[in-house]
Every structure is written in structure tokens, then in C-alpha cells.
């Protein structure tokens, strides 16, 4: 595989990651969301392996396997189990203003390209052009967390943001040092257990996972 092909594959996978991010932004069904999240993880993992191969950065293989294990297998599995136990797999969320959300998403992509342009000029890595996509994925995750009202959706948005961050690390620098990546993965795993516990608490206390109901702690006027 020569440099050009690798760069093309890298761009293709980056596009797929962004596409799944947009998909999540408007997906109403919880199962659909988890599937999209799984796909995103898979693209991420493949991309990491490709970059690792081309740049002969062997520690990236470890991150690739780690991503596969955590984001394609463990986290989707945990989410599936939770949703099954909470019996909310058929729930459909009402998502308002899809066109507006999409437009804001597009604006965020443009903004990301603008913000990262000084870095693209400095970098010599083959992956440099995908840094903007990575930042866009982070921002779209953020947007998703703001616009959606379901606890599970918010968490998936959170995890998608983390995917974007991971992608940023591989595209800007060929991955963070291994100790950092392992630590981040550990934090993610702990977070997964915590939100699992949370889902049950919210569900038993509020009878639903709609976080809109949690509005008691407003400032008294």
C-alpha cells in the first residue's frame, strides 16, 4: 500500500466517521443510534490500523485493537443489555427541528476546518487533512448532547465526542502515548458503569429516561 492509497483510505474512513456522526444527530430510534455508534467505532478502529501500517507506528495496532474491543464490542454490548433490562428498546424519541440541527452541524464542520487550518499547514503527516473532521465529530457530539433530551442519547453523544477526540489524536499526531490512551480507555470504561447505574436510578426515580423532567434545580427567581 503506497502513501497515496493510504491517504485515500484515510479520507474515506474519515468521511464515514463524519457521516455516522450526522446520522446519530437525527436518528430517533435507540437501537439505530447504537448501531451507528458501533459503525463509527469500527471505522475508527480500521482507520487507526491503516495509519499504524502506513506510518509503521506499531503502537497504533494496540490502540486499534483497544478501540475495537471497547467501542465496537464492550460499549455497544453494555448499552444493549441496559436497554433490554430497562425495556426501552422500542422507544422513539421526538426530535424537533431536524433541518435546523443539520444546518448547525454543517456550520460546525466549516468552523472546524477554519479552526484547524493553521495546524494543517504545519503538519507533515498524511493524516493531517482529517483533523478538521475529528474536531467536527467532537462538536457534533456536543450538539447532539445539547439538542436531545433522552439520557441514553446524551450518553451516546458523549461517547461519540470521545470517538472524535480519539480520531483527533490519530490524525494530528499518530496517536497519543500509550499510557495516556490506556488511561483514557479505563476512564471510559468506568464512565460506562456509572451511566449504567444512572440509567437505573433515573428510571426508577422519574419513571422515564427523559431528562426534561429533571428540572427541579432551577434558580428561584
Amino acid at each position: 500500500m503506497d502513501m497515496m492509497t493510504a491517504a485515500h483510505i484515510n479520507s474515506l474512513l474519515a468521511a464515514m466517521v463524519l457521516l455516522t456522526a450526522f446520522g446519530m444527530l437525527v436518528q430517533k430510534r435507540i437501537y439505530g443510534l447504537i448501531h451507528l455508534f458501533t459503525w463509527q467505532g469500527l471505522f475508527l478502529s480500521l482507520n487507526t490500523a491503516v495509519v499504524g501500517y502506513v506510518a509503521s507506528q506499531h503502537h497504533l495496532y494496540i490502540s486499534s485493537v483497544l478501540t475495537l474491543a471497547l467501542k465496537v464490542i464492550a460499549l455497544p454490548y453494555i448499552l444493549h443489555v441496559l436497554i433490554h433490562r430497562l425495556k426501552i428498546h422500542k422507544e422513539v424519541e421526538t426530535v424537533v427541528n431536524i433541518p435546523t440541527t443539520m444546518l448547525i452541524g454543517l456550520a460546525l464542520v466549516v468552523l472546524s476546518y477554519h479552526l484547524t487550518s493553521p495546524i494543517r499547514e504545519l503538519s507533515t503527516l498524511i493524516t493531517r487533512s482529517t483533523l478538521a473532521i475529528a474536531l467536527a465529530t467532537v462538536m457534533i457530539g456536543l450538539l447532539m448532547m445539547i439538542t436531545r433530551r433522552h439520557a441514553v442519547t446524551q450518553i451516546i453523544g458523549f461517547l461519540a465526542m470521545e470517538n472524535g477526540l480519539f480520531f483527533a489524536a490519530t490524525s494530528a499526531t499518530y496517536g497519543m502515548p500509550l499510557v495516556v490512551e490506556l488511561g483514557v480507555a479505563l476512564d471510559m470504561l468506568i464512565a460506562a458503569f456509572i451511566f449504567g447505574i444512572f440509567f437505573f436510578h433515573i428510571h426508577t426515580t422519574f419513571d422515564s429516561l427523559d431528562v426534561e423532567q429533571m428540572a427541579r434545580l432551577k434558580e428561584d427567581e
Binding site: I119, V138, A168, T173
Partner: peptide, 28 residues
């Protein structure tokens, strides 16, 4: 209490994710 903790978890999670991006840039 659950509402407060959820807010803490989500908002600090989002915030600290930005710091990780900053750290990636620092490493770059």
C-alpha cells in the same frame, strides 16, 4: 440529587473532553 449528579456527570464530561482535545494539540 440524581438530577444534580447527572448534570455534574454530563457537563463536566463535555467540559473535560475539550481539555483532552487541548492536550492532543499540545502533544502535536
Amino acid at each position: 440529587a440524581i438530577e444534580a449528579a447527572w448534570k455534574y456527570f454530563i457537563l463536566c464530561g463535555v467540559g473535560i473532553a475539550q481539555a483532552l482535545f487541548g492536550t492532543v494539540l499540545l502533544y502535536f
